[in-house]
Nucleic acid binder design. Structure first.
Lengths: 194, 194
DNA sequence: ATAAACATACCGACCAGTCGGTATGTTTAT
DNA sequence: ATAAACATACCGACTGGTCGGTATGTTTAT
């Protein structure tokens, strides 16, 4: 592996960036900060990434990719099982990424204002919607779910998840979000499952 | 009425601020921008508000107050009726505040990072939670809802609403959010109503 | 040798907040 | 009544500092 030092530098920059962005936010996290935390010079930073935004985008892509993988891997035998399993995954997501969750919000906000970022985020986002829509259709086909509008049902599920995560970010100690997530899905399933 | 000019200036500043913040975001909206849009000097700005953050906070307080009022006014005869009515209110919220919705996200994000803002936002937020909890309990008492955990049910409702609004911000044309909101609530009600 | 990787010094734009001073009321003393 | 004294509202140039990005020089690996 010829350029392995280079690889490591890139990784260090990304690693430092995610921490600085998470703590301070996109604007307040300066390139100098990130470089300092990464133990890397500004020259190195701009050698590997053309702009600060490019780093942000790279982080976002990585994050979206991870979600994608996680969702594919979560598929179980039946649809309700899959959904319950996914719900049980949520606390792990919280624990593993506690301090990074504000970044999720930051992604969303930037996407709502920046055309380029929006395009980068909207494609995978719609892809998730499709996955859930397909999941619900599978559930209907296998007879475990009622004959609901699969599109709407998928959006309900996603909305619920997004809302839970967001409230978890805002008020981590305001509720037992793990329990809430589990019971929320149960209530939802009563409306969806046969 | 002494110094009514003063009142008007404050109003103009707030009005300009909400527009600039909505379009550009908190950081990118400079005080100079806001002053220019308000047709007011920087001196006037700092005469009325000690900091830029103070203006932001004032806007947030106003917004939270409006939500509070809206929710109180939405109470109908029975609990399911109230919930459905509230859902039907959502599109109006969207239409009336389309370009301001990213500010809602901004509030959330700032609150997650700034102690002072967090305290200002968390009290009314928990108040809403209580209102919904009470609403669910009323529903159980009047026999229109199943005997669910009222706290959890309230959180489900709020999560769903937050998730819908957020997705509406990110992808306004990605779905018919009005229809989705209505049908979402119906699915939820199947899990909650007797 | 030479090209990629990295470091340092620097630039220009921007920005929140300050400050000295002015304009517009409002109160007080005569 | 009215002028002086005071208070509030407002103006806009200026400051001190930050930040994204660049230019230029040095090291390292092949």
């Amino acid at each position: 592996m010829p350029q392995q030092r280079s690889e490591e530098t890139r990784a260090r920059i990304l690693d430092a960036a995610v921490r600085r962005f998470a703590i301070a936010g996109y604007d307040a996290a300066s390139v100098d900060d990130i470089c300092a935390e990464a133990g890397v010079s500004k020259g190195a930073f701009y050698h590997h990434y053309p702009t600060k935004q490019a780093v942000f985008l790279a982080l976002m892509q990585g994050w979206l990719g991870m979600i994608d993988m996680g969702m594919s891997a979560a598929r179980k035998d039946t649809v309700p099982e899959t959904l319950v399993y996914m719900t049980n995954l949520l606390p792990g997501v919280f624990a593993a990424a506690e301090d990074r969750l504000p970044m999720f919000l930051e992604f969303w906000l930037q996407a709502s204002r920046d055309e380029k970022i929006w395009k980068a985020v909207i494609a995978p986002y719609r892809h998730y919607q499709e996955i859930f829509t397909q999941l619900v259709e599978d559930g209907i086909a296998e007879g475990s779910l009622k004959q609901v509008d699969s599109q709407v049902a998928a959006q309900v599920i996603v909305s619920l998840a997004v809302g839970l995560v967001l409230q978890g970010v805002l008020d981590p100690h305001g509720a037992d979000w793990e329990k809430t997530a589990r019971e929320s899905m149960q209530i939802l399933m009563k409306g969806l499952a046969k």
